[in-house]
Design a protein around this nucleic acid. Structure first.
Lengths: 233, 233
DNA sequence: CCTACCGATCGGTAGG
DNA sequence: CCTACCGATCGGTAGG
């Protein structure tokens, strides 16, 4: 079909999307002008409009592309029922692959989380539907790790807390900061899985503050590799 | 000084700020027009400009007001050194008070997190400075709970993960959803404190997935009040 | 003199 | 692929 098109057509489109993602991520979709996008790409505005029909199609391509890429990451995880240990292993791996994807497409991810509200209803519902599928896959693993938790009532909110940690990462992480990206993924996974394992039921009651985490500290003496440096408690 | 002003002047200003927060939260600062703000307030645009010098002063008042309110919440927590149990109790209370404040000022909080990028450098630095003070107060408590953690290297990133959970709450919680606001705060606190207690050192190594959380599950048998319903592991 | 407010319109700039 | 523009709307302000 794209016979008459330049072989660099898709390359140029991707380059424009990358520049648009960077500008949208920095200033938001409404505050970014097509003049800025064209200038960042080294193109005239008229040339830019040769590759994309309008400004809105940039937003659709960026958000739908990013959420579709994330959805591909969770597809292999949609397996049959798992043992808690298997679910835990899969969730750990999934967290790491998501963090890695965010590092790879930081700008597009920011556009996905912050500018989805500027999509028209039909486009927004399609994107949000894919997001729901992603959350459902995570929640299934969370429920698989703790089958005693009420799936709808607790696994889903817990999963959203996990997404909060992950999605918030790049609002405060500077590339080249003291925290390396590689160190963060296991930190998120260990914090969440540790907290998930330590959760007692029922939640929502006024448990005395500290009972859970205080108990959690005893764990360290039982870890197979007691590599704790010290404890002044 | 404001002798000649109407007694309702401050009331009207607050009403305008609330409407502006709602519109900014929904559509972002750049995409919200002063006409919309005026219409939402039931005022003419000229009257709106009587209460606020320009659109930008709305943004400054909203962001600075919200971050200042949050800073007030942590001020009492800036105490001398604490035992881990005391720090844990304070952090639990602080998480609950933050979630409650977010519920109370959901719109303003969204403006603070999403539109701070539209502040001019000086205003932005002032707001971000207050945010840094808030994070530092939280990180101090996190370090107080786990004095074995390297403060700068681990307590601060862990604190940012906590803020991720909290700040992300209202991107997915609908008012009137199945999850009550009151049930969420202890859920966040228990998940974080439980995970914090279960964390082993050193992080960043490729620990076998599951070791930490699996160990955390043992804790349940040691909790003073073993209110766990069941465990199929 | 002050405030509180109105209908109408300014100069510039956005997406296209 | 550019300059030159458009219809519409922006933030902000005039006189009264």
């Amino acid at each position: 079909m794209p016979r008459g098109r330049s072989p660099g057509y898709e390359v140029q489109r991707d380059a424009i999307l990358a520049q648009a993602a960077h500008l949208f991520a920095r200033s938001g979709y409404p505050a970014t002008s097509m003049n800025q996008v064209a200038q960042a790409c080294g193109l005239s505005k008229a040339t830019l409009y040769h590759y994309f029909e309008d400004k809105y199609s940039l937003l659709v391509s960026l958000t739908d592309g990013q959420v579709s890429r994330l959805l591909l990451l969770v597809s292999p995880a949609s397996r049959d029922s798992l043992t808690p240990a298997q679910a835990q292993q899969q969730l750990h791996a999934l967290i790491c692959s998501f963090v890695a994807e965010y590092v790879h497409a930081q700008d597009a991810h920011r556009v996905l989380t912050e500018d989805v509200k500027f999509l028209q209803p039909l486009d927004r519902e399609r994107v949000l539907g894919k997001e729901r599928d992603i959350v459902a896959a995570f929640a299934r693993l969370v429920g698989g790790i703790r089958p005693d938790l009420d799936q709808a009532l607790l696994a889903k909110p817990l999963t959203m807390l996990l997404f909060g940690m992950i999605n918030w990462l790049f609002t405060w992480m500077k590339p080249g900061g003291s925290m390396s990206h590689d160190a963060l993924a296991p930190m998120v996974a260990d914090l969440f899985l540790g907290g998930l394992g330590a959760l007692a039921l029922p939640l929502g009651l006024d448990l005395p503050a500290g009972v859970l985490a205080q108990a959690g500290k005893h764990v360290k003496k039982r870890v197979t590799k007691p590599n704790l440096k010290g404890d002044s408690a």
